[in-house]
């Protein structure tokens, strides 16, 4: 098991950066062969990568820091629309050789706009706890959706069409690797133990010199940034954005990945993101009953393993609380 994901204090953390580089390289190399892949499977693989980015970044907020956010689809929408708009405006002016740079700029812009909005939403709302925060972030997500629905410059209700297809397997998984790296290294440091401390006991954390508000806002902003990046990837993958794709059900989907993977468990959340992205595809043959089966499976899993599907060892949460 890579030391990156190990919650034990380890001196071998020097390997973390190596894992990141290896992950990015692997993604790029595999991407070189992607022309040979079945396009349907390729599309699903990219979907999985985007889900991983979304779930792992939300895990920093909901899992590690223990703040229940339902706004991730909102941040994804902000990032997706910002990125798509930039490449739509600029792509006619940019020569083909510089298209990757444009894409990178679009993704970074999407991430930054989402992070900025995350900061704006986070500072006032992170004073709230639990259910209240969930409701505020839920409201925020809906506001984003309604605003987009009424903005003619991004296609309003009919959606934003003709976004260039820049997203590849390489981009997606390289960014997924970066997301995992950022969240895992952040949490697995003395600094990052503060996130979990805030989750466990805010009052105690505060009297140990940990500023809970700052930690929560930091988690929120970083999470929002990567949700924005995921939105950018999504936009340049589907080539079409519609406000209805970012409703609160999308947020719930991501939350389910985090819960099913085990709050605060990076590996579990990655697996859950993949499984839950594949599941609807696998169930496609059942046509109309697909979503019913999907829901039943989730209910079953939650009843069988409320602490998360992939949790083992001492870091179990939410069970047998003292």
């Amino acid at each position: 098991m890579p030391s990156l994901f190990n919650s034990q204090p380890s001196t071998a953390l020097g390997g973390a950066k190596r894992w990141l580089v290896a992950g990015i390289l692997l993604a790029v190399v595999v991407s070189l062969f992607s022309a040979q892949f079945n396009r349907y499977y390729l599309g699903i693989a990219i979907d999985c990568g985007i889900s991983i980015i979304l779930a792992v970044s939300l895990n920093l907020i909901n899992g590690h820091t223990g703040q229940f956010s339902l706004g991730h689809a909102g941040f994804m929408a902000v990032g997706g629309y910002s990125a798509a708009k930039l490449s739509l405006v600029c792509s006619p002016m940019v020569p083909d050789s510089l298209k990757p740079l444009l894409f990178l700029a679009a993704l970074v812009l999407g991430g930054c706009v989402a992070a900025l909005i995350g900061l704006g939403v986070g500072i006032p709302s992170l004073r709230l706890k639990g259910d209240y925060l969930a409701i505020v972030t839920l409201g925020f997500g809906e506001i984003i959706r309604v605003v987009v629905q009424n903005m003619d410059s991004v296609g309003a209700a009919s959606g934003l069409k003709g976004i260039p297809k820049y997203t590849t397997l390489g981009w997606t998984f390289a960014l997924a690797a970066i997301t995992i790296y950022v969240v895992a290294t952040l949490v697995n440091s003395t600094y990052g133990r503060g996130f979990i401390a805030v989750n466990d006991d805010e009052v105690a954390a505060s009297s140990m010199g940990i500023n809970p508000v700052r930690y929560k806002v930091t988690a929120f902003v970083i999470g929002a940034f990567f949700a924005g990046v995921a939105g950018g990837l999504y936009a340049h993958h589907k080539q079409f954005l519609s406000p209805t794709g970012f409703d609160f059900l999308k947020s719930i989907d991501i939350v389910v990945m985090v819960i099913l993977g085990g709050m605060g468990r990076t590996v579990g959340v990655i697996i859950a993101a993949i499984v839950l992205t594949l599941l609807p595809e696998v169930l496609r043959q059942f046509a109309d009953y697909r979503m019913i089966i999907y829901s039943l499976i989730i209910i079953g899993l939650m009843m069988a393993r409320p602490q998360g599907l992939f949790t083992t060892g001492w870091k179990k949460k939410g069970v047998a609380a003292v």
Binding site: G194, M208, K317
Partner: peptide, 18 residues
């Protein structure tokens, strides 16, 4: 009020960071 999900080591470690 310990950080119940953290290890003994990490409880103390979290408090050193200030």
């Amino acid at each position: 009020r310990l950080f119940s999900s953290l290890s003994v080591f990490d409880n103390v470690r979290a408090a050193t960071q200030l």
